[in-house]
Simulated scan of single mutants.
Amino acid sequence: MPTKAEKIVAGLGGIENIEEVEGCITRLRTELRDPSKVDEKALKAAGAHGVVKMGTAVQVVIGTDADPIAADIEDMMD
């Protein structure tokens, strides 16, 4: 069973599509290589309350567990 972080990574187009990720209170702030790979339905199925796209910057609104999820994603990027 994939973790919430793994589901979010998949919804963002895979780990190779993520350049940067940062937790910010209730959001994951990401910088993506190709924002067209974002699957909003998959992100919402993973628990996201919303997705905000601004060019290659994509914010995923997920609630108070944003920081631990960002840390999990950073671990996957290493």
Rank of each mutant, 00 (worst) to 15 (best):
R33F: 14
P2D: 02
G47L: 05
A71L: 09
I25C: 09
A57E: 11
V21G: 01
V61C: 12
E31D: 11
S36Y: 00
A57T: 03
V52I: 13
G14C: 02
V58L: 10
E22H: 13
E31I: 04
V9C: 05
A71Y: 09
T64Y: 14
A46V: 15
A57Y: 13
I8F: 08
N17D: 05
G55C: 05
T56A: 03
G14V: 06
I15N: 01
G11F: 01
G47A: 02
A10K: 01
A70R: 04
E74H: 10
G13W: 05
M76E: 04
D67L: 14
E40W: 00
M76Y: 02
K44M: 14
I8Q: 01
C24F: 11
L12Y: 06
I8G: 01
P68D: 07
G47K: 03
G50L: 06
I62Y: 14
V60Y: 02
G50K: 03
P2Y: 13
L12M: 06
E40A: 14
I8L: 00
R27T: 08
V52Q: 01
R33H: 15
L32D: 08
A42P: 14
T26G: 00
N17W: 12
I62Q: 02
K7A: 04
N17M: 09
V9E: 08
L28G: 05
A71K: 10
N17T: 06
M76P: 12
T64H: 15
E19Y: 10
G11D: 07
K7C: 09
K44T: 08
A5R: 07
G23V: 01
K44Q: 09
G50N: 08
G55P: 12
A48F: 04
I8C: 00
K7S: 01
Q59F: 06
E40C: 14
I73L: 00
K53V: 15
A71G: 09
K7E: 03
V58W: 11
V38H: 11
M1S: 14
G55E: 03
M54G: 14
R27L: 10
G55V: 13
L32W: 02
P68H: 00
G50W: 10
A48Y: 04
T56Q: 03
A48E: 00
V9L: 03
A70S: 15
L28H: 03
L28C: 05
G50M: 04
A42I: 00
E6K: 08
D34E: 11
A5S: 12
H49S: 13
I69T: 10
L32I: 04
V58Y: 09
T56E: 02
A45T: 15
E74D: 07
I8E: 01
V60R: 00
G13Q: 06
K7G: 02
V52Y: 12
A5P: 12
I73E: 05
T3M: 08
A5F: 06
